[in-house]
Design a protein around this nucleic acid. Structure first.
Lengths: 136, 136
DNA sequence: ATGCTTATTGCAACTAGTTGCAACATTAAA
DNA sequence: TTTAATGTTGCAACTAGTTGCAATAAGCAT
């Protein structure tokens, strides 16, 4: 199901701004901040408002079409979800971001379900620490 | 080593505002937002500034004297670190917060070290999901 | 194509948190 | 106790993100 169909199926509407935001997310390799999305949307729709961008990202996040990740800077990053989920290891020293396969978290998820009857909804997690090059 | 000594050992100074903030953190059971700390400090020092509160919390966080946790509301929470570390399971439906012992994360930590040579610095983590009462 | 319902937008004002800078205050040393 | 060094504060202006509301426009039915 395409993003368009997912929106429609839930009674949401497809607007020019939303299309633009989805296109930006699709054409972006890696992460992008809300502010950068906003500026790109403005290039096409000069009077688009930032609240529209934030509200759209919030909506897409709720529909599981984009992932929101706090990579430790002063603003949150977004990216479009397609294939496999992955998480991030962020080095507190050098700032490098490493991708980790979601499978690594499977044991933790099972443990939380078994021990706490809590079903985690781990979508895009950033774990901070020290990378191989910055230890000691 | 007391908070006071930890600060002094690193060349930081103990001021009236810092003392007030530490007292508030110590006397608070559970979590408290920066804004609430700010208002309590103001009760004692009417012209204290919010940037002082934020800067002090940032400092204490760096010294591992307080933990910062995003519990999903619109502001981050703090609490003073004493005994054992623990993490949080936050229900996305009802908002309840459950404490989880840090030991639950030990296997994940080992895996990250072994597989990625990444040493995680998991201090206060919030995992979102659905609690026992809100499933289905 | 027209009209109706209601989702969506722009706006403006707001909250949470950050930053540069000059003034100030703690600490240790003389 | 005075002084010097520098850590800390208040201030004001800023960034990121949110919210209520009236105006607008998408999508559907006719």
């Amino acid at each position: 199901m395409s993003c368009f169909e997912t929106l429609k199926a839930k009674g949401y509407r497809m607007t020019a701004e939303r299309r633009a935001i989805l296109e930006i997310l699709h054409s972006t390799d890696g992460h992008i901040t809300a502010d950068r999305i906003y500026h790109q949307v403005r290039a096409k729709f000069p009077k688009a408002n930032k609240s529209t961008v934030y509200r759209t990202l919030e909506l897409l996040k709720g529909l599981n079409l984009v992932a929101e990740t706090n990579l430790g800077g002063n603003s949150v990053c977004y990216h479009h979800i397609e294939q496999s989920h992955h998480h991030h290891l962020v080095c507190q020293k050098c700032g490098r971001v490493y991708d980790v396969d979601a499978a690594v978290f499977a044991p933790l998820q099972e443990l939380l379900i078994k021990k706490y009857q809590f079903v985690p909804d781990i979508r895009h997690l950033a774990i901070f620490g020290y990378c191989p090059k910055c230890q000691g």
